[in-house]
Amino acid sequence: MMAAPMRNVDEIRDRVILGEFGVRNVHSTDFPGNYPGYDDTWDLRKFKKNFRLNIAHMDENTLEFDMVGIDAAIANAFRRILLAEVPTMAIEKVFIYNNTSIIQDEILAHRLGLVPIKADPRLFEYRNAGDEEGTEIDTIQLQLKIKCTRNTRAAKDSSDPKELYLNHMVYSKDITWVPIGNQADVFGDSKIGPVHDDILLAQLRPGQELDIVMHCVKGIGKDHAKFSPVATASYRLLPEITLLQTVEGEKAERLKRCFSAGVIEVENINGEQVAKVVNSRLDTCSREVLRHDDLKNLVKIGRVRDHFIFSVESTGILPPEVLVSEAINVLIAKCQKFLTELESSEME
């Protein structure tokens, strides 16, 4: 199987080439005036015609989709916004009334801050700078009040802390929500609290206790990573593997083993074992093949410049598809902010 070779100019424009000693054609060059015979002026109709988006996989917390026909500058903006500019609610103020445990106040406060809190940030406002109190529209109050005691019913000869003590492990499930104002009515059904019940926060021994009140506020990942709504958000370019010549016999088998499983298969054609590219999407682009002198000139490895395979993993606060929509809306809002600013500065 041999694909028709691309025109040289098109290869420079549309493919990133993985060479033996480096990566070629890394940058986008599709700007007006760069290529005679190509109209690279921005054209919304053309963009809409070429743009494709396909969801490959989606569940409660993860999402994989292909975004095709867009430049890395814009795809990267979406990715960066997902990480740093889509807001969530997180613990920001920790009031420690009592902490006799072995874990220091500041370490405990930091751990608490990183616990994902299930609450829809779209229903809250940002707290004003300098406001220490907070109101029902910008604050969620949580409480952690727990004391470790001896288990009187434990066996006499037991040495297992699980049997000997009660409440010796403090988990995120021990955090309770204390509604402020009308919050009990407004959010009554949505059960505000930690996303996960089983995050270990501290360990106690009999007589030790924690008495803590926390304020959650709305924030963005740019300010602190605890506000980031995603565990990961990344993209990779679609790999493209092209065989330049027919590869047969032992070479075909070796070629197959140079790539990730499922990328290349060996087929029997008229009694000859012939290599065929089956699914280049699966490849990790290891470039192993370029270490084989007799194989490296038989194959071209590249990536499609405008084909992004996005992968978004939510922390569980909001579903991943909502996060992507929110991220795109953030970019639109940025543009609108500067457009209105341009209008008003021209009025002056």
Binding site: W42, L44, F47, K48, F51, L53, N54, I55, M58, F65, M67, I70, I74, F78, E321, V324, S325, I328, N329, L331, I332, C335, Q336, F338, L339, L342
Partner: peptide, 24 residues
């Protein structure tokens, strides 16, 4: 040109948003 850039970026983002939501 700045205004056109901001408008074009808005248009592109809106199209991505609509396509994404339809696909979801």
């Amino acid at each position: 040109t700045l205004r056109k850039g901001l408008n074009d970026l808005t248009d592109a983002s809106k199209h991505v948003l609509h396509t994404f939501e339809a696909q979801v």
